[in-house]
Amino acid sequence: MERRSFLRGAVIGASAAAFGGTLWRGAALADPAQPGTGPYGPLGPSDANGIRLPEGFTSRVVARTGEQVGSTSYTWHRAPDGGACYADGSGWIYVSNSEVNPSGGASAIAFSATGAITGAYRILSSTRQNCAGGKTPWNTWLSCEEVSRGYVYETDPWGVQAAVRRPAMGRFKHEAAAADPVRKVIYLTEDVGNGCFYRFTPDTWGDLSSGTLEALRMGSGTSGPVTWGEVYDPDGSPTATRYQVSGAKQFSGGEGCYYADDTCWFTTKGDNRVWQYDAAAQTIELAYDDSLVPGGSAPLTGVDNVTGATSGDLFVAEDGGNMEICVITPDEVVAPFLRIMGQSGSEITGPAFSPDGSRLYLSSQRGTSGSSYGGITYEVTGPFRS
């Protein structure tokens, strides 16, 4: 397996190119998406894994909590959550958080060029309720603690370098992170009912040990220009970070976060919204809001983790709802892409595409048992559009 160090000057200098594999094409969404016929057609009947998929797609189980991963000796963690994929020579690595407290952390599965499992191992230990996170352009994984005054941990997907705590990125109830290599900032969501949307500007791009943390400010409403105010004490004590910036916009339970083509997309579970922040124009608007779907027929509820494909499609996972991943297309259509049956006590987490875009990884955090011991991690393969 190819090994990489945390901070390599050559990678940092080429970070925009390295991150460009999932850049969006075409114009950003202009209005909140509405239900319609998705690009992959209707869902078929349940397959052997209890997943309903469009024609041409198949699924397989790659890991189960408490069981050894493939033919390895590594036991998969409880409550799999946020995840990301990394190129590794001709193969790739999928990393996954563990949302338990204590002893959360994160693990990784290595795949060959054919998709065979070649290894599995721990990359982060002895942390608390690691929910989502984000991939950096220099190929580290930011694992975020979803606890009061939680930390961001920068981890090595190859499991070689020790994980590093990054307190400069703020101590709050972290959810997800997304890197913007153009403006050289990291966006961060906060999972509380009156949380903020943050950006962290490192003093040196590629080194997250120091920098400036800010919270987004805007007037009332859901669209318009924004500004940023500095969080004067990222440690969050005695005053929580979300109360330190006058006029900071409050968001109802920040969840997933994804960046591409000058846009950061993030979700809020308290109001079932997908937001889009135009980083070039410094404006914000809604990409999806279930309350704006006529007739109470919103296909996407319980919005949570989010990722994107090279086609410009967003894939949004549900925490509850119908246990679906829904696709939101650039032409403002939202439709189910898959549905997991018989697991209503769970949530879908960690959607991430393999480097070539042909495989989508995801987890059912609590599986059929409804317990953190019942987690299942899947791979979906098929004709994803590019």
Rank of each mutant, 00 (worst) to 15 (best):
T22D: 08
D271N: 13
D278S: 12
F266Q: 11
V62W: 00
S90G: 08
V303Y: 10
G36D: 12
G254S: 00
G159V: 08
S126M: 06
C144Q: 09
G345N: 04
W141M: 05
R242V: 09
I93S: 11
Q250T: 15
Y259M: 15
A260H: 15
L23C: 13
A168H: 06
V185N: 05
Y232S: 14
K249W: 14
R166E: 11
N139F: 03
E55H: 09
A309W: 02
V316D: 07
N49S: 13
D278P: 07
G82K: 00
V152N: 06
R217A: 15
E67D: 08
P234R: 10
P35L: 04
A18P: 03
S46E: 06
S344F: 01
A162V: 02
Q250F: 12
W141S: 01
A298T: 06
A240P: 12
S126K: 09
R64I: 05
L7T: 13
S358A: 12
G41M: 05
G41R: 04
D331S: 14
I340H: 14
L292N: 02
F111V: 01
G134P: 07
E175C: 07
A298N: 08
T307Q: 02
T267Q: 13
G104K: 03
G41V: 08
P42V: 02
A287N: 15
S15T: 14
A177K: 01
T58G: 12
P54R: 06
A79N: 14
G312A: 09
R273E: 13
G370L: 06
P351Q: 03
P355N: 10
E67G: 04
V185Q: 14
A162E: 04
